[in-house]
């Protein structure tokens, strides 16, 4: 089952409440990435995300599998939004579930860090002065 998802719909934390629940689970960590109104001194009014979906899903699932093995997780999930996003909207969530909190926290961090450097998704910022630009990334 694909646990890494790409969506153009609004991401609601509430709809993902049932992920990572179970009798053996003692800890559940959730990271939410939100669109903010500034970057490197410029006022941002909205973001656009574009994605190479087939490879993004493949690579995203690989990251979730790595985290599951490395941190002995009971469950791992990630959903990333694409399309046009307004300030304050959720761009990405990661949910990890494990027996104890340390693994859940560390795996959650691992997943979002790896997603940001490996999954083919690109962000374009639109600024208040009417300009826009694709972010350069780490290269």
């Amino acid at each position: 089952m694909n646990k890494f998802k790409i969506t153009s719909d609004i991401i609601e934390i509430e709809t993902n409440k049932s992920i990572g629940r179970g009798k053996a689970i003692g800890a559940r960590a959730l990271f939410e990435g939100i669109v903010r109104n500034s970057n490197e001194g410029q006022e941002v009014i909205k973001l656009e995300y574009e994605c190479y979906e087939s490879l993004a899903i493949k690579e995203g699932n690989l990251i979730l599998d790595e985290a599951t093995k490395q941190y002995a997780l009971n469950d791992a999930f990630c959903v990333h939004r694409i399309g046009s996003l307004e300030i304050g909207e959720t761009a990405v969530i990661v949910i990890t579930a494990s027996k104890h909190r340390d693994e859940a926290f560390r795996a959650c961090r691992y997943i979002i860090d790896e997603v940001k450097i490996r999954v083919p998704i690109w962000k374009k910022e639109h600024y208040i002065d009417g300009e826009s630009g694709w972010l350069k990334g780490a290269g």
């Binding site: 995300y49 190479y52 761009a91 979002i112 999954v119 083919p120 998704i121 694709w134 990334g137 290269g139």
Partner: peptide
């Protein structure tokens, strides 16, 4: 073939 620019998701 796809040329993948540096990714900037998240």
């Amino acid at each position: 073939l796809v040329f993948i620019p540096p990714v900037t998701g998240g």
